[in-house]
């Protein structure tokens, strides 16, 4: 590998490692895969517009969670266990244990409603 390429690659690696680190240490946002903010089960019945709209309404209703940090912490508490399977497991547990919210009439698990809200915030940032 040429030295120039190596430096570029190494720099990109440093940035890639350092952004989550900065996010975590300065903003308290845990590292997570942004794709995981799309609730898989709900996307079987809703389009993205609907997910964003429910997310916005969740953020309005639960103003105390209206930040990427709070939502990501709630959804991705375990940095080593982040996956759709884990989120579906959390969703299932919400329904089993009665952790539901009603947003715009939809009876949702707290987890999937938070995913919608996180997706909405990401979309706003973008």
């Amino acid at each position: 590998m040429k030295r120039r390429n190596f430096v570029l690659l190494a720099s990109a690696g440093v940035v890639a490692v350092s952004i989550p680190a900065v996010n975590y240490f300065f903003y308290g946002i845990p590292d997570y895969d942004k794709k995981l903010s799309i609730p898989q089960l709900l996307s079987l019945i809703w389009d993205e517009e609907k997910i964003l709209s429910i997310g916005a309404k969740y953020s309005e209703t639960f103003a105390e969670e209206n930040s990427e940090r709070d939502l990501a912490r709630a959804l991705f508490a375990d940095p080593l266990n982040q996956s759709y399977d884990k989120l579906e497991e959390m969703t299932q547990a919400d329904f089993d244990e009665g952790r539901m919210v009603i947003i715009d009439g939809w009876v949702l698990s707290k987890t999937e409603a938070r995913q919608c809200a996180l997706h909405h915030l990401q979309n706003q940032k973008a």
């Binding site: 089960l41 709900l42 019945i45 969703t91 299932q92 919400d94 329904f95 089993d96 009665g98 539901m100 009603i102 715009d104 009439g105 939809w106 009876v107 949702l108 698990s109």
Partner: peptide, 16 residues
């Protein structure tokens, strides 16, 4: 709504 959520088969929207 809770039961269909538990069963993982559907989501329910209550009328206004």
């Amino acid at each position: 709504a809770k039961e269909v959520g538990k069963a993982g088969i559907a989501r329910i929207k209550l009328h206004d």
